[in-house]
């Protein structure tokens, strides 16, 4: 029983790290560009399928892991530049546009790759289990777990220490004042959009071996990311991290003990947070 719980805990944490990647991008983009990107799950799916194609074509998962986020990020940059910027300051229109974009991407993927469910094998280096005495556990989720924690620390460091990180935080707090100090908000916003969508694409490549690809997964992942940021608080990476952990664990153990009601548990969690602290657990009140 203890082993079962431990296994489930690790599974949940690995899933939580995927959610973190998504929520992190969503949160960064919202903070800087003030856009709730509801195409986020579609970017995840795009990353997953592109990863699949590239891994097969190049025969190398690691190369795909590097290239796909780059490509998805570039697409994100193009979307910001050509579709969203013209709607600057019109929140509702921007959100609706990202929804539309999400549907378009998801349906194009369905058109190209079909509606069949695809499971993706982990790369050979990471397939198979790891033996820890009597306990054996697949390597791949551990890799995802490690990657997520490493990214969390890295992004925190970038935001805390690098000029770009400080610019991102300044634009998030007060874009006008930042521009009066020679920070170009439009460029910061463009780059952040690229980084955010690249993170979603990365999530897709990393997540495909964990969660089988199927139509509708994009909506599922967008929804999870939204719930994480609502719970954790929008605009803060700590909020995305701890929110993702909470949602991941509740989801994992919910599936184990109350398989019918797992999804419902997460919504109950969200409702509880909203009732007690509408700005999210670690959130600041947004005017």
């Amino acid at each position: 029983m203890a082993l079962l719980l431990l296994t489930q805990l690790l599974n949940s944490l690995a899933f939580a790290m995927l959610l973190f990647l998504l929520a992190l991008g969503l949160s960064l983009i919202f903070g800087v560009a003030r856009v709730v990107n509801l195409a986020h799950g579609a970017f995840y799916m795009l990353g997953a399928y592109l990863g699949l194609v590239l891994t097969n074509a190049l025969g190398n998962f690691w190369l795909a892991l590097l290239l796909v986020p780059l490509g998805v990020g570039l697409l994100g940059v193009a979307v910001e530049r050509f579709l969203l910027r013209g709607l600057h300051g019109r929140e509702l229109e921007q959100v609706l546009l990202t929804i539309g974009l999400g549907f378009v991407i998801a349906d194009l993927l369905r058109g190209v790759f079909g509606a069949a469910i695809r499971s993706v094998p982990p790369p050979p280096e990471l397939s198979g289990p790891l033996f820890l005495g009597a306990f054996l556990y697949p390597k791949y989720p551990l890799f995802v777990l490690g990657l997520g924690v490493a990214l969390f620390l890295a992004v925190r460091l970038v935001l805390a220490r690098t000029p770009f990180g400080i610019q991102v935080r300044a634009v998030t707090a007060d874009p006008d004042m930042a521009s009066a100090l020679a920070v170009p908000p439009a460029r910061v916003s463009l780059l952040t959009f690229g980084v955010g969508t690249a993170l979603a694409g990365l999530g897709g490549v990393v997540g495909a071996p964990l969660i089988a690809l199927a139509p509708g997964l994009d909506a599922q992942m967008t929804l999870f990311a939204l719930i994480v940021v609502v719970i954790g608080g929008l605009g803060r990476i700590e909020g995305a991290f701890w929110g993702a952990l909470l949602v991941g664990v509740v989801d994992g153990f919910g599936r184990l003990f109350l398989p019918q009601a797992a999804m419902f548990l997460i919504f109950a969690l969200m409702a509880l947070v909203l009732a007690l602290k509408p700005e999210g657990l670690l959130g600041r009140r947004v005017a």
Partner: peptide
Amino acid sequence: LAAHRRAELGLALVPQGRRMFDGLNVEE
């Protein structure tokens, strides 16, 4: 010209109400 271009050309503003960036420390 946008504000950041003016800033590059040599204008700087000490704004009314001081407008500190939420979340940044003094050094940042």
